[in-house]
Design a protein around this nucleic acid. Sequence first.
DNA 1: GTGCTTGCAAACCCTTTGCAGTGAA
DNA 2: TTCACTGCAAAGGGTTTGCAAGCAC
Lengths: 156, 156
Amino acid sequence: MNAPPSDMTQALREAGYRLTRPRLAVLQVLRENEEGLDPQEVHRLGKALCPSLGLVTVYRTLDLLAELGLARRVHSEQHCHRFASATCGDAGRDSHHLVCRGCHRVVEFPCEGLEGLIEGVRQRTGYTITGHLVELSGLCPACQAAQADGEKEADL
Amino acid sequence: MNAPPSDMTQALREAGYRLTRPRLAVLQVLRENEEGLDPQEVHRLGKALCPSLGLVTVYRTLDLLAELGLARRVHSEQHCHRFASATCGDAGRDSHHLVCRGCHRVVEFPCEGLEGLIEGVRQRTGYTITGHLVELSGLCPACQAAQADGEKEADL
DNA sequence: GTGCTTGCAAACCCTTTGCAGTGAA
DNA sequence: TTCACTGCAAAGGGTTTGCAAGCAC
């Protein structure tokens, strides 16, 4: 059980938006589900916290949160329209996600070491680079262990 | 005007698929438009090459080509459902695109210098990294020039 | 000739819009 | 009390499915 996302409610408030139960529900759902959810899933889970929650409100709230940098859109080959909680604040437009192929959990990582790549591309292509989207995929430690167990069982 | 994409037709054939006019049209459209097209655009352009081309067929063909590695899905914050021609063959799952914010042209770039980043993330998170999606966005030289011209005019 | 492929129409489903009622400040 | 916000209903638009006709092999 997570504590209410006080940082985020603060940020919403400071941006001049009202703190309503539907918005709190969406925030809480994103916090409790790191794996990235699509609007339908947010709606389904959010109704547990706010039974009157409408799907339309989920769409509007997700847009709002993404705009404020409190949520971020997650893209992958399979799912393009998922949202995950952002750590906090206006994290800017660039995103660096690590998506687990097993449990779909999404974690962020600091994007150090990309400057060299960007500089090289800039020199080679003549483009000015203004944004980047880096999404790594792999297996988290838990899913690695689960996979190893599965293989052991298969060997019996 | 491009030559017919002979490598690709060969690959289609070898995979046991028939070479039909709609498929050739879709292939050709992807080849002639590097910037990445959504299915609607492929359909519109493809009708010039094959007037009877149906939108449904475009969807089915794009899926097929993506599966064979002849086309690749392009994701970005704005457009998640675009397709671009793959250089050729089964180019693997990893993609490195540079998207121009002005003209939406997509170019690929060699992804050197990412190993260090990946290794760092692996050590820090314990994840095994099996794939990556890197998309840089910016302005191509032509659009930079266009923008500069626009600003000059605005100054008058 | 065979059966994979196509195109049409319709179904589906996700997303957005319009609008009147509701509730946070 | 005010008006931003919500939920409902309906519209909108992209994508998929079913099926008979067409065409590559």
